[in-house]
């Protein structure tokens, strides 16, 4: 796993220089920084806080020297037990999002996959089918562009694009800020399309009801073994592009077996977003599981 996450990180290169931005299709002026409005300090935006910190340190330092002329101050060390979850802040925000969803009876799905496995195409296929039953809205996550949001916008459903800049995953704060910018209807479905990445988004709870991991038959059938954390965290796995099976070397049974070895609770579906094959079976399961009807 070591080598993998390193190479992935070189590809997606998350750093703290940019910061996430919300955009809306067809509104070129619309542009909201996730950090704006003091909705909570965000871990990728530590700059201001850190310079304040440095300032404090300096003040303390000077203060220390002033007093040194008169008498000695001793620096003592004290061990403080914390036992605090490193992801506490994200997890607390995710729980707040979850509470909001529950109060409004919104079912949120977090779609996760590597780039190009068909997340947006799958949404384009299911949204027209689901829309007849309940309102649907979408949050799109990508490093740059509103291309995916534009595709969803064309379906006539509310959509907001989160551009993570250099960030490699969506986090709970970005979702919270996006929710502020959307007017979600009660008893509706929210599809969150995460940044295409099979590593980093696995660790960040967004408050979703289910994590949906998608792989396509043009990828290797050992993907669940190569990126086990993602498959371990997911609630269901969708194998997409099965219409291409005759043309590629992909062992469906072995892929499924690999996925089950990583997570024996994983639900498994095979479909083609392009031809629609298998989509009805999955949606039937989804409706039952989430009591959407």
């Amino acid at each position: 796993m070591r080598g993998e996450s390193k190479s992935m990180c070189n590809t997606c290169g998350c750093s703290d220089d940019g910061g996430a931005v919300l955009r809306k299709p067809g509104e070129s002026d619309y542009h909201v920084h996730v950090d704006d409005g003091g909705a909570g300090k965000h871990h990728t935006h530590g700059e201001v806080e850190r310079s304040e910190e440095a300032h404090h340190q300096e003040v303390h330092h000077d203060h220390h020297h002033d007093h040194d002329h008169h008498h000695h101050h001793e620096i003592r060390s004290r061990h403080v037990l914390l036992e605090e979850d490193v992801l506490l802040k994200n997890n607390l925000l995710a729980e707040r999002n979850r509470g909001y969803f529950e109060a409004k009876e919104i079912v949120a799905l977090n779609f996760l996959s590597s780039p190009g496995s068909g997340k947006t195409s799958l949404l384009e296929t299911i949204i027209p089918l689901l829309q007849q039953r309940l309102p649907v809205a979408v949050i799109e996550g990508d490093q740059q562009t509103t291309n995916d949001a534009d595709r969803i916008h064309a379906l006539g459903v509310p959509v907001i694009q989160i551009n993570t800049g250099s960030g490699c995953h969506l986090d709970a704060l970005m979702i919270q800020r996006a929710l502020h910018e959307m007017e979600l209807q009660e008893h509706s479905l929210l599809c969150i399309e995460n940044v295409g990445n099979l590593v980093c988004p696995a660790l960040f709870d967004l408050g979703e009801a289910l994590k949906v991991v998608i792989i396509s038959v043009t990828e290797g059938d050992d993907k669940p073994l190569k990126y086990p954390t993602m498959f371990h965290e997911a609630d269901l796995c969708i194998l997409n592009k099965i219409d291409l099976l005759p043309y590629v070397e992909f062992d469906v049974a072995r892929c499924r077996q690999n996925a089950m070895r990583v997570n024996h609770h994983l639900e498994w579906f095979e479909l083609s977003a392009k031809t629609g094959e298998g989509v009805a079976e999955w949606l039937e399961w989804l409706e039952k599981r989430l009591k959407l009807l």
Binding site: M8, H43, T44, R50, E53, L82, K89, D171, C200, F204
Partner: peptide
């Protein structure tokens, strides 16, 4: 690379605790 955002959240958390403890 989620390690960077995680490192920042660790720093944020420990600095807050240290300040609280004086």
């Amino acid at each position: 690379m989620h390690e960077m955002s995680i490192a920042l959240s660790i720093v944020e958390a420990v600095v807050a605790h240290a300040q609280k403890e004086g």
